[in-house]
C-alpha cells in the first residue's frame, strides 16, 4: 500500500516538474498573493510587512521552475510588475519550502546545507524569514496544517536533494 502511494506521489511530482514550467505564472501568483493577504491580515495591519513597500520579492521554486513575485502597496500584498527586477530572491526546491512551511526544517539549517539560497538584498529575505517564523500557526485550520505536514513529509522522501 505504501509502495503504491509512493509511486503515485513520485508520478505526480515528476508530472508537476514537467508541466508547471510550461504554464503561465500569473494564476499561481494571484492565488499565492490572495492567500498571503488573507492569512497575514493582522501583520499587514500592524505594519509588520511595511519593509516590502514598493520592493519586489521573488520566491523561486527551483525544481518546479515557478517564480512567484510579490510586492506590497498600501496595506496589501500585490503582484509585481513583470519587467521590474526583484530586489530580493529566495530559492529552494518545493520540498524544502514545504518543510519550512510545515515546521519540519529550520531555514538556517537549509541555508548552511546550501538548500536555501538568498539573493539580492539580504535584509529583505532575512526579515521575511523572521516574520514568517513568527506567524502563529494556530490561525491555520487544523486540517490544512495536517495536510501540509503529510505532503511535506512525502516530498521530503521522494524529492532528490538539491546537492545530490
Amino acid at each position: 500500500m505504501l509502495a503504491v502511494k509512493r509511486s503515485i506521489s513520485q508520478l505526480g511530482y515528476r508530472f508537476g516538474c514537467k508541466i508547471l514550467p510550461l504554464l503561465p505564472s500569473w494564476p499561481g501568483e494571484v492565488a499565492f498573493i490572495k492567500l498571503l493577504n488573507t492569512r497575514l491580515s493582522e501583520e499587514l495591519h500592524d505594519g509588520l510587512f511595511d519593509f516590502l513597500d514598493n520592493q519586489v520579492l521573488e520566491v523561486n521554486v527551483t525544481d518546479l521552475q515557478i517564480r512567484l513575485r510579490v510586492s506590497k502597496r498600501d496595506a496589501a500584498f500585490v503582484r509585481a510588475l513583470a519587467d521590474v527586477e526583484a530586489d530580493s530572491t529566495i530559492s529552494a526546491n518545493f520540498a524544502d519550502f514545504l518543510a519550512i512551511a510545515s515546521g519540519r526544517e529550520d531555514p538556517d539549517t537549509l541555508f548552511f546545507q546550501r538548500r536555501l539560497c538568498l539573493g539580492g538584498q539580504t535584509e529583505i529575505g532575512l526579515t521575511v524569514k523572521n516574520r514568517l517564523d513568527a506567524f502563529d500557526r494556530s490561525r491555520i485550520p487544523q486540517w490544512a496544517l495536517r495536510w501540509l505536514e503529510v505532503i511535506a513529509a512525502e516530498l521530503a522522501v521522494i524529492t532528490p536533494k538539491y546537492r545530490e
Binding site: 519550512i100 515546521g103 526544517e105 529550520d106 531555514p107 538556517d108 539549517t109 524569514k129 523572521n130 517564523d133
Partner: peptide, 10 residues
Amino acid sequence: RQRSPAYVSQ
C-alpha cells in the same frame, strides 16, 4: 534566538 521554531523544537 535567530533560529526558527523548528530548530528550537529539535
